[in-house]
């Protein structure tokens, strides 16, 4: 399709790249030609989702192994955005992270997947070649 967008970027398994990837999400929100909603809010949400997904891959799936990489794909087509974050580690069990709403406010951890689930329409985590992929969809209504 004429207005489809495909972005793929691979970064070392390090949190210093969070800002770079988050900014890509923010900038994308300003460029989506068919989106008519609040671009600043969408940009912030994409920044948050990409940041949380990348942290999950770096710390939980790849176990902060500096030899590993994280690959991010962003695909926009037919009014829908698909974000895939590929890790190359042993992964984590998304099902074990209870989908029971907002975590206890006094917990110091455990908000990342909740934030992703809150800001995207669907979230799946499954095995992929050489690792796992966190797959997140959002309708751009």
């Amino acid at each position: 399709m004429k207005n489809d967008i495909d972005i793929e970027i691979t970064v070392p398994n390090h949190t210093r790249y969070l800002s770079l990837i988050g900014r890509i999400g923010e900038n994308m929100a300003q460029e989506l030609s068919s989106f008519t909603g609040d671009r600043d809010a969408l940009g912030h949400h994409l920044n948050a989702v990409l940041t949380e997904a990348l942290v999950n891959a770096i710390k939980h799936a790849n176990g902060t192994d500096s030899d590993k990489k994280v690959r991010i794909q962003i695909h926009v087509s037919n009014g829908e955005m698909m974000i895939r974050v590929f890790d190359s580690g042993k992964g984590f069990d998304l099902g074990s992270i209870a989908d029971s709403g907002c975590p206890d406010p006094l917990n110091e951890q455990g908000r990342g997947i909740y934030i992703i689930r809150s800001l995207m329409d669907s979230v799946e985590y499954r095995r992929a070649k050489g690792g796992n992929v966190l797959e997140m969809k959002k309708a751009l209504g």
Binding site: G22, E52, R111, Y114
Partner: peptide
């Protein structure tokens, strides 16, 4: 301008 779950967690830690 931006805070993630780790930043929030650090503030909760300080609060506690």
């Amino acid at each position: 301008r931006f805070i993630d779950s780790s930043g929030l967690g650090v503030l909760v830690s300080g609060f506690k």
